[in-house]
């Protein structure tokens, strides 16, 4: 079957989709967007988290045919998504965080150096929340959405919001640090 939907703001079309394919498979194998990860494919790890019409979901549990006509944001589109959000809330062009990012040079394709990042992405790097990185994309999408809803979360709020995302490397301490850091920077920038 054919499926048309919007991914990271761009209309996409997938052809010859097998009816049993998940959104995760279509993103990874048909759209060249492997950022959403395939760690469990049973909704138990959160590594495939994307936003479907704004809502964080496990893309492994969404049948490809279900996204016809809908909007998906993946980790690959997170920076754009965050930038548009800050524009929408009047923060455009004024945030220190943003201006710092805009100063970055052109992207180095080998290291990603110079890539514009969402605040939560930068915080994950800065706080040491990334080790193997396989859980990272899902955690970023989930954490970014939580900070959108709850800009000043308590530790218990953060833990609850991220309780659907498994990480095997970090023991979560640096992930907590990263989300606190992103919240603090977000608070300071507005």
């Amino acid at each position: 079957m054919r499926v048309n939907f919007t991914v990271n703001g761009r209309p996409q079309e997938a052809d010859d989709v097998w009816e049993g394919e998940s959104l995760l498979y279509v993103l990874r194998e048909r759209m060249g967007l492997p950022g959403s990860k395939n760690a469990c494919e049973q909704g138990e790890c959160g590594s495939c988290t994307v936003r479907l019409d704004g809502v964080p979901v496990c893309s492994c549990l969404v049948a490809a045919g279900q996204v016809q006509g809908r909007e998906v944001v993946t980790v690959e589109g997170l920076a754009d998504y965050a930038r548009q959000r800050s524009c929408g809330t009047g923060g455009c062009g004024t945030s220190l965080e943003e201006s710092r990012q805009w100063q970055a040079k052109g992207t180095d394709s080998r290291t990603g150096e110079g890539t514009e990042l969402a605040p939560i992405q930068q915080a994950f790097i800065d706080a040491g929340a990334v080790q193997c990185g396989f859980c990272t994309p899902g955690l970023l999408v989930a954490a970014d959405e939580m900070l959108e809803r709850n800009p000043d979360p308590t530790d218990a709020d953060i833990r609850e919001a991220l309780s659907g995302n498994l990480c095997r490397c970090t023991g979560y301490e640096k992930i907590m640090d990263a989300v606190r850091l992103a919240a603090a920077r977000q608070g300071g920038a507005v």
């Binding site: 049993g20 998940s22 494919e41 049973q42 909704g43 549990l61 969404v62 049948a63 279900q66």
Partner: peptide
């Protein structure tokens, strides 16, 4: 029928079920 997909998609992903028809209720 498939809506949230929590049960159905796991069965499909792990080859436990191959329904003839999948009906999206979303």
């Amino acid at each position: 029928p498939i809506a949230g997909g929590t049960d159905v998609m796991v069965e499909i992903n792990f080859d436990h079920r191959r329904p003839e028809y999948l009906m999206d209720l979303n």
